[in-house]
Design a protein around this nucleic acid. Sequence first.
DNA 1: CCGTGAAAGTACGGCAACGTACAGACCGGA
DNA 2: TCCGGTCTGTACGTTGCCGTACTTTCACGG
Lengths: 217, 217
Amino acid sequence: MAERTDVCRRCTIVDLSAGEVIAESGMPIRHVYFPLTAFISSIATVNGQSSLEVSLVGREGAFGVSLAMGVGVSAWRAKVQGSGSAMRMSAEDFRTVLNVNPGLRRILQRYVHVLVSQIAQVAICACYHLVEERLARWMLMSHDRAVADTFHVTHEQLADILGVRRAGISMAAASLQARELIRYTRGKVTVTDRKGLEAAACDCYAATESIYASFLG
Amino acid sequence: MAERTDVCRRCTIVDLSAGEVIAESGMPIRHVYFPLTAFISSIATVNGQSSLEVSLVGREGAFGVSLAMGVGVSAWRAKVQGSGSAMRMSAEDFRTVLNVNPGLRRILQRYVHVLVSQIAQVAICACYHLVEERLARWMLMSHDRAVADTFHVTHEQLADILGVRRAGISMAAASLQARELIRYTRGKVTVTDRKGLEAAACDCYAATESIYASFLG
DNA sequence: CCGTGAAAGTACGGCAACGTACAGACCGGA
DNA sequence: TCCGGTCTGTACGTTGCCGTACTTTCACGG
């Protein structure tokens, strides 16, 4: 599409390594990222202590779209969850491209709507579903975005992502492993039974996927 | 402002009564609402059972802004929480106004960003905070939007809003009443100690307020 | 090869909220 | 005035997760 070439021209390819913080809550957004093989986690906090992942973005999306809403400040901390490459554009260039490319603007607006729906799903999921179901869901999301069957994440990180104790993740992960849906050792997770994992996850996974498909498929 | 008169011209004033459903999840948004004295609750559901209020909109905001994102389908059920009046515009007119009024578009885009932040706050709040704190927070939000000190809501409704048991609301509400922060009988709630209620609520109330102020104040 | 630190396993009491159920209180209409 | 339905109070055992803490296991660099 025309939107795509227009974007690519102003982007540079960058390598992102896991753990890297690309935006801080309340701070200016310097760049917009369009992940290729990397994926980015947005984490909200309260009291600087309690945290919760509100969005996970891979090649299907972008980080920094609030610039398209005329807001140049990040609402959350954004960190690289999966190492890899991404296309990057300066905030300034992004604004320019948006002005001359109404097609891109339309797409990104629809994307924002999808993002809103996803965040609401995170809310209701955190409220109602068991840790194990939520963990299974996250594994699926990560699996999709990592492209590969194996990706890196520790129980500690998962605890911050789902907003539960590290010990709680250990229990849930052990259960998923016992059911032979995943395998893991010291931060390396492998999905061994995709179908089984989908059955173990709460409906939120399917719901989120279907929303994405119907607005950006 | 020019945006305002432009909007008002195409609006009709309507009376909304509590409980009225103005949009259904997955269904087309027929009208955009700018509440005056009414306020509107957006409620997400999962499995048609479990529900959670993701946004509460009064005269400070609007319902139907996803149309400004190019999406004509409501992500959630929207129902009137507080009876009163609102300005209403057809979806069609709204699209037209958006096209000829870039100022309005900019404001609404910023509003969407605020909405996104608020929903994330709901998520983290539901995840970490006690029912009583969350209830206090909701009372404050309702108090702001109702303008009056008294508004109508039953424990049953509050249970759906906060995603907890009705019995849990009864306990929390009784506690707030014992502390003389509110008074209530059969669906009629009166805020008697605003300051005290603010102290009883979690930080999410202040956080949400400050985000609103900094982007739309 | 061993030491060190990170990652993960496991345990404990404690508690908030759960699901369910029933009884009392109140209001409006017949 | 009484009835019926709505709203609220309250109870019970259950459970999922909490906070904390200690141990075990593994990977890696010296």
